[in-house]
C-alpha cells in the first residue's frame, strides 16, 4: 500500500530537484503541449530525447520512472487494441486480414504512436512529483495562481487545503492500516466473500477513519488558532521562491523541444 510509485518524492539532490517549482509546473504544461503538437515519430523522438535528458538530470532511477506507467497499463493496452482494429487506413496501406480483424502497417504505427504519447505524458508528470516536495508544489501553484486573487478567488486557502491534504495522505494510510488490523483481529474479512459482503466489510474501517479525520481536523484547526494563524493577509513566507540560472537552462531545453517539434511537423502526420 505504501509504495505507490506515482506521486512519491524521491529525495536526492539534483539539477531538476533544485529548479523553481513554478518553472517546473509551467515546463510540464509546455512539454505536454509539445507532446500533443508532435504529429509524427520525429517529433516524438525529440520529446523522448528531452525526457531522457530530464530523467538523467534528475538522478531518479529510470526503473522508478518507468514504473509510474504501471498505473495506466490497462488503459495503454486498451488504446492500442482499439487503434489497431478500428483505424481507417488509406488505400495504399499494407493490410493483413484474419477473421473479422483487419490489421495494417498504418494502424500499427498509429497505435504505437498513441501509446508512446500517453506513456511519455505520465512519466514526465511523475518526474514533477519525484523531484518536487508536496510543499514546494503547492507553494509553486499558489504563486502561479496569484493573479486569480484579483477576482477574489481564495488562492492561499486553496493552496493551504491542498498542502494539508497532501500532508495527511500518509497519516491516513497508516491509520487505515491500523484500523484494518484491529478489525481483522476481530474476525473481519476483507478478502473473500461476495462483492456485497466485501462492500459491507468496509464500513468498520470507514467510520472510524472518518471520525478520526474529523478529530484530526478539529485539533489542527485549534492548533492553528492557538498560533494566531490568519491566512494570507499577514503571513510572510519562510522560503521565498527565486528563479536561478538553472531555470534559465531549463527554459532553453523546453524551448528547444517545442521548436524542434514544431519544425518537424513539416514531415507530415503518422
Amino acid at each position: 500500500m505504501k509504495d505507490i510509485a506515482f506521486g512519491q518524492y524521491y529525495p536526492v539532490s539534483s539539477f531538476v530537484h533544485k529548479l523553481d517549482p513554478r518553472f517546473k509546473i509551467v515546463a510540464l504544461i509546455t512539454y505536454i503541449v509539445a507532446i500533443f503538437l508532435a504529429n509524427n515519430y520525429y517529433g516524438m523522438a525529440v520529446c523522448a530525447l528531452g525526457f531522457f535528458l530530464i530523467v538523467l538530470c534528475s538522478r531518479v532511477p529510470f526503473k522508478k520512472v518507468f514504473r509510474s506507467v504501471k498505473g495506466i497499463f490497462v488503459l495503454l493496452i486498451f488504446t492500442a487494441v482499439l487503434q489497431i482494429f478500428f483505424y481507417q487506413e488509406s488505400e495504399n496501406a499494407k493490410v493483413w486480414q484474419w477473421w473479422i480483424f483487419t490489421v495494417s502497417d498504418e494502424s500499427l504505427l498509429h497505435a504505437g504512436f498513441l501509446v508512446l504519447r500517453l506513456a511519455l505524458l505520465v512519466m514526465v508528470a511523475s518526474i514533477l512529483t519525484f523531484t518536487t516536495t508536496p510543499v514546494a508544489l503547492t507553494d509553486g501553484l499558489e504563486s502561479l495562481l496569484y493573479p486569480l486573487k484579483l477576482i477574489r478567488f481564495p488562492v492561499h486557502e486553496l493552496a493551504l487545503i491542498m498542502s494539508i491534504a497532501l500532508r495527511f495522505i500518509p497519516t491516513l494510510m497508516e491509520e487505515t492500516e491500523r484500523i484494518m488490523n484491529a478489525q481483522k483481529a476481530r474476525g473481519a474479512d476483507f478478502e473473500s466473500g461476495s462483492l456485497l459482503s466485501r462492500a459491507k466489510a468496509v464500513i468498520p474501517i470507514l467510520i472510524p477513519l472518518l471520525i478520526s479525520s474529523f478529530r484530526r481536523a478539529e485539533e489542527l484547526g485549534d492548533a492553528m488558532d492557538a498560533r494566531c494563524y490568519a491566512g494570507s493577509k499577514v503571513r510572510t513566507k519562510y522560503k521565498k521562491l527565486k528563479f536561478s540560472w538553472r531555470d534559465l537552462v531549463g527554459l532553453l531545453v523546453i524551448a528547444a523541444i517545442v521548436v524542434g517539434v514544431v519544425f518537424l511537423k513539416r514531415f507530415g502526420a503518422v
Binding site: 484500523i179 476481530r186 474476525g187 473481519a188 468498520p204 474501517i205 467510520i207 472510524p208 478520526s212
Partner: peptide
C-alpha cells in the same frame, strides 16, 4: 478509535458475528 457501530451492543457483538 476503532469503534464503529451504532450501539455498544453491536460493536461488542462484531467479533461474535465474524
Amino acid at each position: 478509535y476503532q469503534l464503529f457501530a451504532e450501539s455498544v451492543y453491536d460493536d461488542v457483538a462484531f467479533g461474535l458475528k465474524n
